[in-house]
Design a protein around this nucleic acid. Structure first.
Length: 632
RNA sequence: GCUGCUGUAGCUCAGUCGGUAGAGCGCGUCCUUGGUAAGGACGAGGUCAUGGGUUCAAAUCCCAUCAGCAGCUCCA
C-alpha cells in the first residue's frame, strides 16, 4: 500500500503498517527520533496503524507540538510514580500540559511536602530509566466506567460520564491506567529532562464549592540543557519582580496594617505623577474633560446602579449619621450623576468625561499580589457618551489611544481579548448584538489581532480587554473598553436629538492603564527597575571625586535642578567607586562624575546606567541631552 | 475565601538535640580625599509576627489568629 508524505511524495509500505513502520521505511534515524505521528492531520501514537493513502507525518523533538506531547506524557509518568508511592487510595483528576510545563491533580489524604516531590522525582527517574512503554487500549465506555468505579476513581467516572465518544481510549504506564485521548511518546525513556517545581491546591473543575485537590506542577524538556536554561530564565525573571524592586528602589511598601493597600513613598509618587502628567496631556489632546467624584456615596445610589445586586461582595460599607454609605468600587455612578446634572444635546457628542478615581474593592485575601492586585487603586477611568452610530468610531479611537500610550511606555507585548455576553446579564439580544458588532468592527477597522472569550463580558455589556504580562508570564488586564448597556437605563440618561426628541445615549466605559498601581508594577517588571529617563525618580547623580571640587559639584547639581531635572548630589565621604556602585544599584540613568579636570574645564564626565563611562561633555551640552531624553 | 508553605535587626538570611540571638548589606560617628560597580575602624539596632498551651526551660514543640508566598477561584 502507499502512504503520502508531507512533501507530497508517496511511499510504499506493507499492508498493516503502523506509524513507526512508516518512519522506519523513511529512515532508521527518523524512526529513532520519532515521538508520535500525524496521520491525515491528527496526532496519533507510533503504534497506530495507518490506512492506505493517508498522509503521514513523523513528529520528532524538533516539531513545534513535540514539547506539549512530551509534557503531557511526563504528567502520566508523574501520576504513575505517585500511584506507586502512595498506593491505591489516591484519586486521579486531570493532568494536562500547560504553558511551560505540566501538572497533575491528585486527591489523597496525605499532603505533599517538598520532600515528597523529591521522592516522586526519584520514582519518576526510575520509570524513565526503565523505559516503561505507554500501552494504548480501547474500551467500551460503559466498561471503562465500570472499571473506574470499581477502582474508586470518582473523578475519572465523572469525566467518563460526560464523554460522548464510545469506545474511549485508555493509556497504561507502569501500573497506572488513565483515561486519555493521547497521543503519547512510545515509552518513558523519552522523557530525558524533567523537574517537579511546586505543589499547590486547586479545586476540582476550578469550582470553589468542590473539593480541593493537590496539584503538582512540573516541567519537562528534551535535554538537560534546555531544562537548565528554563530554570535560569525563571530565576532571572524573579529578579525583575516588582515587589522586590519596589522595596529596593524605595518606591512603595506594604504593611500588615493595610493588607492590599499600597503605601507610595516619595520616589514612587514621582513616577506615578510623571505617568499622570503624560495621561492628562494625551487625554486633553483627545478632548477628554476631567472630573472627580466622591469616594463615599450613599448606599441607595449603589442599589440604583446595580452594584448592590452584582458587586456587593467586593464593596466596603459604612454608616454615617445613621445612613448607609458605600466606598466606591467603580467611578461610573458618580459620573452618571454629573451627566444628569445638566442637559445634553446630540451636538455635545461624543462627550468624554475622564476621572482618575480612587476605588476600593474587597478582593479575596488570597489573590492580593504586590501592586498587580490590590484593594485600592486609581483607575484611569472615562465615560464616553455618544450616539449609537458613533459607538464603533469611538471604540476605535480608544483602541488607538491604548496602543499609543502603551507604546510611549515601551510596552509592546499586549494581548487583546473580546469578551461576549455572559449567562447572567441584562439588556436585550439586539442590544448585545449591536454592541458586540460595534466592538468587532472597531477591532477589524484597526487591524487588531484578538481572541474571543465567550461569555466573559461584564453583566452590563461586551468588552475589549488589553492584557500585559508580568515577569513570570502571568497576564494582567490593563485597558478595557466596555459598552455599557445598563447605566443609561438605570440612570435614565437623555439627550436631545436633532429632531427635538429626548433619546437615550450610548455609553462606553473605558480605562487605558487600568489601574495606576498595576501599571506601575508592570512597568517596573518590564524595565527590571531601570525606568527610562523621563520616568526615573532620580534622573542623575552628581558624583564629586574629592571634597576639593564640592563647590563645583554643588554648582552642577543646582544648574540641573534649576533646569527641572531630578538630580541628587552624592556628597558622602566615600570613594568614587562606591558612589558609582550605589547609583548603579539604584538604577539611576545617568551619573555625572566631577573632579579636578571637569571643574577646570566646566564639564562633567557622563556615565550611563549599566553602559559605563560615556566620556566628558560640557555641562550645557548635558542639559541639552537630558532635555532630549525627556522628550523621547 | 480555599489548599500548602513561610514569618528572626530597615533589607537578605544563619540559628544543630528545647538551655534567653548571629552574619552580610544598610544606618550613625570618626579616620580616609579616593577618577567610573563595595576604603577602614568603632557603634547603635531584635517583645524571634501576635495570643495561648506543653515544659524546670520555647526563636525552636503544639493550637489559634494575623500577614506574606505559590496555586485555585476572581478581577483593573
Amino acid at each position: 500500500m502507499k502512504v503520502r508524505l508531507p512533501d507530497g511524495s508517496e511511499l510504499e509500505v506493507s499492508e498493516g503498517s503502523c506509524v513507526r513502520d512508516v518512519a522506519e521505511a523513511i529512515g532508521p534515524r527518523l524512526a529513532r527520533a520519532a515521538l508520535v505521528g500525524r496521520v491525515d492531520g491528527e496526532l496519533v501514537d507510533l503504534s497506530q496503524e495507518v490506512a492506505p493513502g493517508s498522509t503521514v507525518e513523523i513528529i520528532t523533538e524538533g516539531s513545534p507540538e513535540a514539547l506539549e506531547i512530551l509534557r503531557h506524557s511526563a504528567a502520566h509518568v508523574m501520576a504513575a510514580a505517585v500511584k506507586r508511592l502512595y498506593g491505591e487510595d489516591v484519586s486521579f483528576a486531570i493532568g494536562p500540559a500547560i504553558d511551560g510545563g505540566f501538572y497533575y491533580d491528585f486527591d489523597l489524604d496525605h499532603s505533599f511536602t517538598p520532600e515528597d516531590l523529591e521522592k516522586i522525582e526519584e520514582e519518576m527517574s526510575r520509570l524513565v530509566a526503565a523505559g516503561v512503554p505507554f500501552r494504548r487500549s480501547e474500551l467500551d465506555r460503559d466498561e471503562a466506567l465500570g472499571r473506574m468505579k470499581s477502582d474508586g476513581q470518582q473523578y475519572k467516572v465523572e469525566l467518563l460520564e460526560e464523554i460522548d465518544s464510545d469506545p474511549v481510549t485508555l493509556y497504561e504506564l507502569g501500573g497506572f491506567t488513565d483515561l486519555c485521548r493521547g497521543p503519547h511518546i512510545p515509552d518513558s525513556s523519552r522523557v530525558p529532562a524533567f523537574k517537579l517545581t511546586s505543589v499547590a491546591g486547586s479545586y476540582w473543575r476550578g469550582d470553589s464549592s468542590k473539593k480541593m485537590l493537590q496539584r503538582v506542577y512540573g516541567t519537562a524538556f528534551f535535554s538537560q540543557k534546555d531544562l537548565a536554561e528554563h530554570l535560569r530564565l525563571i530565576e532571572e525573571a524573579r529578579k525583575r519582580d516588582h515587589r522586590r524592586l519596589g522595596i529596593e528602589l524605595g518606591l512603595f511598601s506594604f504593611h500588615e496594617e493595610g493588607p492590599g493597600f499600597p503605601f507610595f513613598h516619595p520616589k514612587g509618587m514621582i513616577v506615578l505623577n510623571e505617568i499622570l502628567d503624560y495621561w492628562r496631556h494625551v487625554h486633553r489632546r483627545e478632548g477628554y474633560l476631567e472630573t472627580r467624584t466622591p469616594i463615599l456615596l450613599r448606599e441607595d445610589l449603589w442599589h440604583r446602579s446595580g452594584h448592590w445586586e452584582h458587586y456587593r461582595d467586593n464593596m466596603y460599607f459604612t454608616d454615617i449619621d445613621d445612613q448607609g454609605y458605600a466606598v466606591k468600587p467603580m467611578n461610573c455612578p458618580g459620573n452618571m450623576l454629573i451627566y444628569k446634572a445638566s442637559q445634553h444635546s446630540y451636538r455635545d457628542f461624543p462627550l468624554k468625561m475622564g476621572e482618575l478615581g480612587l476605588v476600593h474593592r474587597h478582593e479575596l485575601s488570597g489573590v492580593l499580589h504586590g501592586l498587580l492586585r490590590v484593594r485600592s487603586f486609581v483607575q484611569d477611568d472615562a465615560h464616553i457618551f455618544c450616539l449609537p452610530d458613533q459607538l464603533s468610531g469611538e471604540v476605535a479611537s480608544v483602541i488607538d489611544l491604548c496602543f499609543e500610550m502603551y507604546g510611549r511606555f515601551g510596552l509592546d507585548d499586549v494581548r487583546v481579548e473580546l469578551s461576549t455576553r455572559p449567562d447572567r446579564s441584562i439588556g436585550s439580544d439586539t442590544q448585545w448584538q449591536d454592541a458586540t458588532k460595534a466592538l468587532e468592527n472597531a477591532l477589524a477597522d484597526r487591524n487588531v489581532d484578538y481572541q474571543v472569550s465567550p461569555g466573559e463580558g461584564a453583566f452590563y455589556g461586551p468588552k475589549i480587554d488589553f492584557h500585559i504580562r508580568d515577569c513570570l508570564k502571568r497576564s494582567w488586564q490593563c485597558g478595557t473598553i466596555q459598552a455599557d448597556l445598563s447605566m443609561p437605563e438605570r440612570f435614565d440618561l437623555e439627550y436631545t436629538d436633532s429632531d427635538g426628541q429626548r433619546k437615550r445615549p450610548v455609553t462606553i466605559h473605558r480605562t487605558v492603564l487600568g489601574s495606576l498601581e498595576r501599571f506601575l508594577g508592570l512597568l517596573i517588571e518590564h524595565y527590571g527597575g531601570a525606568l527610562p529617563f523621563w520616568l526615573a525618580p532620580v534622573q542623575a547623580v552628581v558624583v564629586p571625586v574629592t571634597d576639593e571640587v564640592m563647590d563645583y559639584a554643588r554648582d552642577v547639581y543646582a544648574k540641573l535642578r534649576d533646569a527641572g531635572f531630578r538630580v541628587e548630589l552624592d556628597d558622602r565621604s566615600e570613594t568614587v567607586g562606591n558612589k558609582i556602585r550605589q547609583a548603579e544599584v539604584l538604577k539611576v540613568p545617568r551619573m555625572l562624575v566631577v573632579g579636578r579636570r571637569e571643574a577646570g574645564e566646566g564639564t562633567v564626565s557622563v556615565r550611563e546606567h549599566s553602559m559605563g563611562d560615556a566620556g566628558p561633555a560640557p555641562l550645557s551640552e548635558v542639559l541639552g541631552r537630558f532635555s532630549a531624553l525627556v522628550g523621547e
